[in-house]
């Protein structure tokens, strides 16, 4: 099975995010008054992972993120989640 796995890299809470702050101030607050209380920007990667289970696919991307330093653990946090799958059996 091929799983589509997202890796989202964001600044940790408490680490300022100037891109998110700018989007909030100059775009979000122009369109809606009070409903949106905050905006955080991040980096998005989508992997197609051949694995036996969604848990294994997440584990593979976790290994990639850690060993490839896709994020700096001092400043960033990551979200890893399976968002789709393709059955590649014939």
């Amino acid at each position: 099975m091929i799983y589509e796995v997202e890796l989202i890299i964001m600044n940790k809470d408490g680490v300022r995010d100037p891109e998110g702050e700018t989007i909030q101030r100059y775009v979000v607050e122009k369109i809606v008054d009070n409903a949106v209380k905050g905006t955080r920007a991040g980096k998005y990667l989508l992997f197609r992972v051949d694995s036996r289970s969604p848990e294994e696919a997440v584990g593979i991307v976790r290994k990639l993120a850690d060993e490839g330093r896709f994020y700096n653990p001092m400043a960033h946090r990551v979200i890893i989640r399976v968002v789709g799958r393709e059955d590649c059996s014939h």
């Binding site: 300022r16 100037p18 891109e19």
Partner: peptide
């Protein structure tokens, strides 16, 4: 870590 400048 080296983060994006605050003034972007």
């Amino acid at each position: 870590a080296l983060l994006p400048n605050l003034n972007l």
